[in-house]
């Protein structure tokens, strides 16, 4: 009876995990910035998740769990160890408010490649939270589970990440205009 239960579990793992494959790879590649490393990372993630699936608690968020495994594997990898992810840690409150300046609408002129380069240049902690929020369309709660941080921190980090990205884009657009 136990065996068939395990097998059924494995079947549901397949159903849950395989649809995430493309997204996980994209995320891994963004983190590592390297094809071979990203491939290793995805394989490691699936292997770990398969082994650990029995400890995965039904009712908790499977997607956040998978991303957390991938991210932790990344942090323990060669590239990840070199990356400083934990920054000056933010608290939930005290969001600074930016006012909309006319040039803020310049972002309209940012093309895809420009955004990709800007994103690539951001610190990993900003890059990953922006990807989880905008590309994976995770809720704040899911992001909190994935990054193992409180939702208040999700909000403030997202805010700072967006601000940083806007800053980079603005610089690039302005720079481009002045022929730099």
């Amino acid at each position: 009876m136990r065996v068939s239960e395990d097998r059924l579990r494995a079947a549901s793992f397949e159903d849950l995990a395989l649809p995430l494959f493309d997204q996980l790879y994209n995320f891994a590649r963004w983190l590592t910035q390297d094809k071979a490393e990203a491939e290793d990372l995805v394989q490691e993630t699936y292997a770990k998740a398969l082994r650990g699936f029995s400890s995965f608690q039904a009712g908790t968020n499977f997607r956040a769990w998978m991303y957390r495994i991938l991210r932790n594997s990344f942090l323990n990898s060669r590239t990840g160890l070199k990356t400083t992810v934990v920054l000056d840690e933010e608290d939930g409150g005290g969001l600074l408010v930016e006012s909309a300046t006319p040039e803020s609408l310049l972002i309209e002129h940012a093309n895809r490649e420009m955004v990709q380069q800007a994103l690539q240049g951001l610190p990993v902690s900003f890059r990953e939270i922006l990807l989880l929020c905008e590309v994976e369309e995770m809720s704040y709660q899911e992001i909190a589970e994935t990054l193992a941080i409180p939702t208040g921190t999700v909000m403030s980090r997202l805010f700072r990440a967006r601000k940083a990205l806007r800053g980079v884009l603005r610089e690039r657009i302005e720079g481009g205009r002045h022929g730099v």
Partner: peptide
């Protein structure tokens, strides 16, 4: 509007790599 544009362009730019 600007924030929405940023969200949109990030969404487009973020799906970049195919396995």
């Amino acid at each position: 509007l600007e924030r929405v544009q940023l969200k949109r362009s990030l969404q487009r730019a973020g799906m970049r790599y195919e396995p």
